[in-house]
Design a protein around this nucleic acid. Sequence first.
DNA 1: CGGGCGGGCGTTACGTTATAGCGTATCTGT
DNA 2: ACAGATACGCTATAACGTAACGCCCGCCCG
Lengths: 159, 159
Amino acid sequence: MPALAHHAPAAELADRLTRAEAACAQRGARLTDIRRTVLELILQAGEPIGAYALLDRLKDKSGQGKPPTVYRALDFLLAQGLIHRVERLNAFVGCHEEADHPHPVQFLICGECGNVAEFEDQAIGTAVATIASRSGFVVKRSIVEVEGVCAECATLAAG
Amino acid sequence: MPALAHHAPAAELADRLTRAEAACAQRGARLTDIRRTVLELILQAGEPIGAYALLDRLKDKSGQGKPPTVYRALDFLLAQGLIHRVERLNAFVGCHEEADHPHPVQFLICGECGNVAEFEDQAIGTAVATIASRSGFVVKRSIVEVEGVCAECATLAAG
DNA sequence: CGGGCGGGCGTTACGTTATAGCGTATCTGT
DNA sequence: ACAGATACGCTATAACGTAACGCCCGCCCG
Ligand SMILES: [Zn+2]
Ligand SMILES: [Zn+2]
Ligand SMILES: [Zn+2]
Ligand SMILES: [Zn+2]
């Protein structure tokens, strides 16, 4: 498997961090050093990263940290909608959207290269809402994670 | 939370086990004692049950078992399409469908009573297929798990 | 200004979920 | 009977996640 991490250019990383800071400031949430560092590590990874991998990198950077350190930061970032949790992988990715608010999320997960693409399809959201309302179910959160092989990896395998 | 388990009547349980046996026999898969017992325990639970809870019950029943015992049985049952894994809960449920073959699956998960309803909505499947083909993604498995509050619990809360 | 309050964090300890790896037994087909 | 495949027992360990307690610091109010 290629396993290439789509490292964003440094400029984009800085931009996303700046926007995250602005979003937090706007709603009175405190993006502390630890939280900011964890977000930065997730964005740098460019692919889903687990809590303990984050912890390792956090310790490399700042010499400190225990599991609760990183889980607390993750909880904050999730609540702010700055990252998402990929249930299938027990891992986390930066939110790819411009919007600075929580939103329903759907993923395409490539089993070959490990790449995860975030998308938001209105038809899926509508279909979920329909099936739920039909049975009186009140939706709090919907998880849509599609496993398979991305176009790039499929081409490599076929060629 | 009510936490009532929807224990199926014994007759239905026996029926489902019989059909599982038939399905396995038909395709040359061996539903051994352990596998059959694990399936039975899952069906008896009537709600999602974790691997270690299964292991406890398995030990109660037969006096033996370690984690790999139950995980191997689960792998088999998943491959046969007799059970499903609920990613959000790290737990397993019996397949509710009559069909004896693997199929895409969607869940409504009630956060109040813990009940999980399996359904299969064509519109969701179509929407997923559309979004995937649009980007050349080859779908292997699609996970759709909707968290919220079931009609029953919503009524209780409102009343 | 000082005291109370709440959020953020350090730390210990533990709970839960899942797999690797290896040896033995059992089954299947020839 | 024999060879190969499948199933299982077992030890150990990896990987993921949380409870609970106490300290510190900034903020607010009297
Ligand atoms: Zn997002
Ligand atoms: Zn790929
Ligand atoms: Zn099913
Ligand atoms: Zn309910």
